[in-house]
Structures are given as structure tokens and as C-alpha cells.
Design a protein around this nucleic acid. Structure first.
Lengths: 342, 342
DNA sequence: TCAAAAATGATTTACGTACCTCAAATTTTA
DNA sequence: TAAAATTTGAGGTACGTAAATCATTTTTGA
């Protein structure tokens, strides 16, 4: 009744342990007829390879680098925390994680950081950065050097990256749109879209999804031209004041990406407490507090734990040449209200 | 640069391998001062035990039973599917899962099923069933026999169960309430609450949270007395027709638990397409379709994959006498709209 | 201070798989 | 049919830890 081992397979198939090993690890030097016999025994006994024992015997060590923005964004902070957490889990078994902060908005600096990665020691890289021609070329070089590469949070679809790990940002924008539209009294009013910068692909896609839903489902809502603050708190205050001066009747705000701290502080300073319907992205200490006190109506977020675990699984599968379960790697778009905060 | 092993710890601490083993596995027969020295070496070298090697050496096998309702509920179906999926994962490494269908609504039958579990062979049980005095006593007997016991989906707080794996159902009811309230035009109208039966603890708690939010945040909404269908499709049609006859102006529906298929079919039959704001629980093929076609506005759900993985982690930790990371075991209340369907 | 008790060391086997070497058997080719 | 090539067998070591035995050292108590 105990689980069958390679020994059982060998006995059942009437071959030696070495031959079973050759078949299981698809080494050559085995006749087709013998391969069939062994695989028949494997099926008959319901053998499943003990992966922990296999990895132990292989004593394979993985090293992956995570290149994250070096700015003080709280979202990146939660990502870093998730990476630290996962190091204690069995997910990160036999893998070491290198956390590399980089000026991801500066293509030149980013390329330098990526070029400095030791191809001998590192098996793969996860990159969270906006797509640029320079990055695209560098990703191609990393791939050529045999590294696995995944894009994190923001996709680089035109690069040679192996996978994208993150949410469908168009759908996330649509989700924000539906919520904002339905939360606005009478489903109408003016809505301001606030962006850190419209360069990153995720912001563009969110804006697209949001706009599409607004124009198709909410004719009574007027989406004002997006304002950008470039992660500058002072600038955030100025553009907001200008927007409210031009449109005192703004009823809702959709913040596309980071910079929520400055946004929320400016709103408070301007005397806007809970009279606006505000929807932001990414659950962080700041947005959580704002959600709890009612200043923010909803937070669209992604589980950073899932992000890093999925990235690790994909990087490992790629370096081992194994295939993946796509359904397992789909990151969910989560909607957080005050009532369902974890 | 390679990861430290027990040998490195022994050398660093100037003790033998046996002593390191005694400290790591907290066996007795080691002086306090020596324990400190070994633990100092562990900290200094940053040693983390290789759990796969440890489990391999221990050759420990876990057997856990999952007792689930035997009714044809789609939610239970997704749970079963999640259990099958997890068997292929490293989460279920060295553990065999016994799936036991039972008439969980019949205390007598349920107790018989639980009593039939072989205490020698089984290390723990996950139970999804309403709380009854009979079940409470049987849980106590299981605990006395040394089994780990967790309550799944619906809690049994007055029993001796070790943990509850599932969402905070009061919070889930609150979440449903806020969404329904904000989605209703002008935040007002009549709302019908539909339950399979008000016996299960999860239904009661959801109803409580829902009602609390309604009375505190939405004075314009009138919550009609709950109707029960007891998982009977015909009865569902009858109670719905009666409710709509008495209140033709019902604007929203909140379905507390299972029986969504009958509910949605009855609504369609009565000519109610997308004119109502309908909020239901648990993402299943039926509710997914209803969400996609707009018949349902939102689905409050929990990730069944997380449920079973958490249950397995908790059962294993309990049988090993290890402690857990409570934050990791908190199941999230997920809000699904058409736009963020996975 | 000596015997008893407690602590520690040294060593071994085991877990299930990977991977290596070398010899032997079998098949294929000339 | 002999030589060459291929396939298979047998056996070993290794991975990092658990767990056991037994010998030896250190500590404790009277």
C-alpha cells in the first residue's frame, strides 16, 4: 500500500534500476520496446517521482534576480516584503533570490544593471520596468545568454521575455470603471484620472480599459483629460488644484498607478474627505488606511505573494525546460472594499 | 557561499552532529548552554533546515480525510476539483487525501461517517458541515483519538476543532451589503434575501453582516424577510413568485448560499433579466455564466484552492506539533464582477 | 571523592532519487 | 560469423537530514 519507488518500477518492468533511471530522465541508450515496458510499469503502479528526493539528489540550486524600481513606492515595498516572506517557504526551496534595486525609469541605467548580472551564477531574472527599446534589446541579450526572463507587473510584450506575471491591466481598468460608474450617485458626474506618468504600459492599458467602459456603459459620466504628477508630491498638489478650479463639480477620481500618498494628502488638504468616489490601485498601508476611513471607495489590487510565487515557478520551469500550468499562473484582479479588507 | 548544513553548524558550534540534531529537533539531553551555542551557530550561519531532505529522512506519510457534503452543489464540486488539483502539487507531498462524501445535513449519518474513520491510518480530518451537538461531540472524540480537526467553509466554534478554514462570513455579508447598497439606483428600494436554509452558521453570519450594513449605511433600503428554499428548485420558484407578488418593486436580491442555479432559473422564468441587482456567493460555472451575461451584478467568493491548501497546511502543522503563520491562513473575501473574472 | 546521572560524541543506516562507471549481454552491421 | 555498436545490468556514491546505538566525557549529589 506504500507508494511505489523506482525500485518497484524496475522489478515490475523486469529491468534494472539504471534502465528505469534512463527512461525517467529521458536519457538515450534504451530501446523503444524497453521504454514502453518501463512506462507501462510506471502507469500500472501509479508511480510519481518524489520531487523533493529528486531535487535533493540533483542538488540543483537556482539563483534568480528580481530587478525592482528603487523609488520609495509603497507598492514596491510590499513586493519586497513578499519576496522576503517567500524565501522562508518551500516555494523558494533550493533557490536564492537576489533583490536588485534599479532606476527602472532610466533605460540606460537599467540596461547597465541588467548587463552586470553574472550569467554564470544567475539562472533567471524578473524585471519590473516600463518597456523601452533599450530594455527590449537587453532582454534579448539575457535570453541569448540562456537566462529565463519574466516581466513583472508591467508587461514587455514586444521583447523576448518568456512570460508576463501580473494582472490584465485593461481588465483592471475596466473593473475600476464599472465600480466608479456604479458607485457614483445617479451614475453621472465628472471624473478625473490621475496618473504618475502615462509612459508605463500598465497605466496606458488601465486607462484604455477604464475609458472603454465609461463610454460604453456610462453615458452620463464625463471623463476629464488625465493629469500627470510624475511622482512629485508638489506637482500633484498643483495639478489637482488646477483641475478642481476648472471643474469644481468633480465627483470621482481614478488613480491609475503609484503616488497615492501624495494624491490622498492633497485631497485632504483641499478639504475633500469622503465626498468623492475615489478608486486607486494596489493595496498598501496608505491605501488600506484610506479605505478604512472611507476616503477611498475601492482599491483594485493584485496579491504580491502570488506575483512572486508565480514568477519563481515560471523562472524555475523555464530553467528546467519543464512546462507550466497556465491556469495556475493567472493573477487575479482583486477588489478591496473596507468590508473585505484582509 | 553554499548553504550551510547541519555539518557546518556542528563544526561552527564545536559540537557533534548528534547534538545539533538534538537541538534542532528539540530532543532533550542537551545542556542549556550547549543549546545556546548551537542556536548561535544556526543564527550566525543563517542555517535553514532543508525540509524536503528532512521529510525524506523522516519518511513521514500523512493521511487526511476531507468530509464534504454529498449533495450535487456546484460549490462542493469546485472544492473537490481543487482537492484533486492539489494532489499533484508539492503542497500534497507525502500526503494522501481521502475524499469522503457524507450526508452532512444529517447529524446521525455524519457522526457515523466520522466514527468510521480509522484512527490508526488517518492523521486529520477537514469537515464541511453545519454545527450540531452531535457533531460537536464527535469532533471531541476525534480530538481525543489524537486526530487534527479543521472546520471547512462553515465554522464550528463551540467544538474542539483546531482551526477554521474559510472566510469571515459576517464580513462577507457586509461586503455583499455595501455592494448591493451602492449598486442600487439612488441607493434605495426593496431587497430580498434568499437562503437555502438558515441553519448553517455561515448563512446566519452572512445575513447578520448584511443586515448590519443595510441598517447603518442604507436607510433608503428595505430588507424584506428572508425566504428559504431548502435546496428545492420547485420551492424556490414558489417562494420567489410569492415574494414578487407581495412586492412587485423588489430591486435587489442577495442569495446567501447555495441553490443559485434554481434561483437564477426562476428569475429568468419570471421575466427578470438584468433589471435586478443580484448578488450571490461562490464562483461556480453557473454564477460565472450569470455574471458574464449580466444577470448577476457581483459574486462574493473564496478561492477554493486556497481553502484546501490552507486546510492541508494546518492539518500537517497540527499533526507535527509545529506552529503556523496565521496571516498566511487568512482566506480572502473576493469580489468578482464581470470585468475581473479570471 | 566517588558513584550515579546526565550530556555529548562517534558512527551507522535509512529515505528516494540522480548520476556515474564499467562490465556483460544483446543486437546490428559488415 | 566475426566485429562493432548498442543496450542493459550491477553497483556505487551523493544529496541533507532523521534517528538510533553505544561509548565516552562531564556534571551532579551525597
Amino acid at each position: 500500500m506504500t507508494k511505489p519507488t523506482v525500485h518497484d518500477i524496475a522489478r515490475e518492468a523486469g529491468v534494472s534500476l539504471a534502465t528505469v533511471d534512463r527512461v525517467i530522465n529521458s536519457r538515450d541508450g534504451v530501446r523503444g520496446i524497453t521504454v514502453d515496458r518501463v512506462q507501462g510499469a510506471i502507469r500500472k503502479l501509479g508511480y510519481v517521482r518524489d520531487m523533493s528526493a529528486a531535487n535533493l539528489a540533483r542538488s540543483r540550486e537556482y539563483t534568480f534576480a528580481f530587478v525592482l524600481p528603487n523609488n520609495p513606492s509603497q507598492f514596491v515595498g510590499t513586493l519586497r516584503a513578499a519576496l522576503r516572506d517567500v524565501e522562508a517557504t518551500q516555494i523558494a526551496d533550493r533557490t536564492t533570490i537576489q533583490l536588485i534595486p534599479a532606476a527602472t525609469h532610466d533605460p540606460h541605467a537599467l540596461v547597465q544593471v541588467l548587463a552586470a548580472i553574472d550569467h554564470k551564477r544567475c539562472d533567471g531574472v524578473a524585471i519590473m520596468a516600463p518597456e523601452t527599446p533599450q530594455l527590449r534589446d537587453q532582454v534579448a541579450r539575457l535570453k541569448a545568454a540562456g537566462l529565463a526572463v519574466v516581466a513583472l507587473v508591467s508587461d514587455q510584450p514586444n521583447s523576448a521575455r518568456d512570460h508576463f506575471v501580473g494582472i490584465n491591466n485593461t481588465a483592471a481598468g475596466r473593473t475600476a470603471g464599472v465600480l466608479l460608474g456604479r458607485f457614483l450617485p445617479q451614475n453621472q458626474g465628472k471624473v478625473l484620472v490621475v496618473a504618475a506618468s502615462m509612459l508605463a504600459r500598465d497605466s496606458i492599458e488601465r486607462r484604455g480599459g477604464f475609458g472603454a467602459v465609461m463610454s460604453s456603459d456610462f453615458p452620463g459620466i464625463r471623463v476629464l483629460p488625465s493629469v500627470e504628477a510624475h511622482d512629485d508630491p508638489d506637482r500633484m498638489g498643483r495639478v489637482l488644484r488646477a483641475a478642481f478650479a476648472a471643474h469644481p463639480d468633480i465627483a470621482g477620481i481614478y488613480a491609475l498607478a503609484s503616488g497615492n500618498q501624495a494624491l490622498l494628502k492633497s485631497l485632504t488638504d483641499m478639504g475633500h474627505g469622503n465626498d468623492l468616489v475615489v478608486i486607486v490601485h494596489e493595496l498598501t498601508p496608505v491605501t488600506r488606511t484610506a479605505l478604512q476611513c472611507g476616503q477611498v471607495a475601492a482599491v483594485i489590487t493584485q496579491d504580491v505573494g502570488h506575483l512572486v510565487r508565480s514568477a519563481l515557478r515560471l523562472l524555475r520551469a523555464r530553467t528546467d525546460g519543464q512546462d507550466i500550468v497556465p491556469a495556475q499562473e493567472r493573477i487575479r484582479i482583486e477588489i478591496m472594499l473596507r468590508e473585505n479588507l484582509p
